[in-house]
Amino acid sequence: MDYAAARQHMIDSQIKTNKVTDPSVIEALAALPREAFVAEAQRKLAYIDRPVAIGAGRRMTEPMVLARLLQSAHLKGGETVLVVGAGTGYSAAILSRLVKKVVALESAPELADRAKAILAQLGVSNVAVVAGDLGAGRPADGPYDFILVDGAAEIVPDALTAQLADRGRLAVVIKDQGIVGRGTILTKADGVVTPRAVFDADAEVLPGFTRPQRFVF
């Protein structure tokens, strides 16, 4: 399979046609081999416009959703970033080309190990992969100018927004118990977090980001 051609087709048919115009985001997507971040048996699916299984019951976010979230964050290049639910490291690798430093948090040890190996193989040097509870974030390396929740959430834990720097942004797909969600940017200013829905989107809800069930009597 010609992965370079598939990558260009993804950009032409999925990215540029869905209001992604930021040249830095497009260049990062064009430069990185998305197929390297999935298992060999899944590589032919690496560039489809749907989430792709990466193991541990998880899926890699659709390229268009990732691109629009990153574009909506208006990154300048000097940011310190946290990726929550980094999986095998694709979104962290994209961000490595857009910002100064990336902390990639992953709760599944096998995915974290694969992310470390893939990023090392690609020569990505400004991403630190760490294992831990996704909902708790990584306060030791914060505060963060930008947090990407690489997946969907029914709720965004306060622990994550607490790790945003003032004027920091958090990007996530917000879903309401299985209904197709909205790509959303949360901005923190003077301790107040304000959400702004940007576009319709779908993604897999990350472990620990579901709304608690309510019992009805």
Rank of each mutant, 00 (worst) to 15 (best):
P63E: 13
P63H: 12
P63D: 10
M64R: 15
L66D: 00
A67C: 13
A67Q: 06
L69A: 11
L69M: 13
L70Y: 09
L70H: 11
Q71E: 15
A73Y: 11
A73R: 04
H74E: 14
L75H: 10
L75Q: 06
G77P: 11
G77F: 04
G78L: 08
T80G: 15
V81C: 14
V83A: 07
V83P: 03
V83N: 00
V83F: 11
V83H: 04
V84G: 03
A86M: 02
G87C: 01
G89P: 06
S91K: 01
S91T: 12
A93N: 03
A93M: 11
I94Y: 02
L95V: 07
L95T: 06
S96D: 06
R97A: 13
R97I: 07
R97S: 08
R97T: 03
L98C: 11
V99T: 11
V99A: 14
K100E: 12
K101P: 02
K101G: 02
K101Y: 04
K101E: 00
V102I: 12
V103W: 02
A104I: 04
A104R: 04
L105H: 05
L105R: 12
E106L: 05
S107V: 07
A108T: 05
P109I: 02
E110K: 07
E110Q: 14
L111Q: 06
A112R: 08
D113C: 00
D113V: 08
R114N: 03
R114Q: 03
A115I: 11
A115K: 09
A115M: 04
A115R: 10
K116S: 07
K116V: 06
L119N: 02
L119G: 07
L119T: 00
A120K: 15
G123N: 03
V124K: 04
V124T: 14
S125M: 00
S125H: 05
V127P: 03
V127L: 08
A128K: 14
V129F: 08
V129A: 10
A131K: 09
A131H: 01
D133G: 01
D133P: 06
D133Y: 05
D133W: 02
G135A: 13
G135Q: 06
A136M: 10
R138W: 15
D141H: 07
G142F: 15
G142H: 07
G142S: 07
P143A: 03
P143S: 05
P143D: 06
Y144N: 05
Y144D: 09
I147L: 01
I147R: 01
V149S: 04
V149N: 00
D150Y: 01
D150L: 09
G151L: 02
G151T: 07
A152V: 08
A153P: 00
E154K: 05
I155G: 00
P157E: 07
D158R: 12
L160T: 03
L160C: 03
T161Y: 06
T161A: 12
T161W: 08
A162Y: 04
A162C: 13
Q163H: 01
L164M: 08
L164N: 00
A165Q: 08
D166S: 12
R167V: 13
G168E: 05
R169Y: 13
R169K: 15
R169I: 05
R169M: 12
L170C: 08
L170S: 03
A171N: 04
A171G: 10
V172Q: 02
I174Y: 11
K175W: 00
K175D: 14
D176M: 13
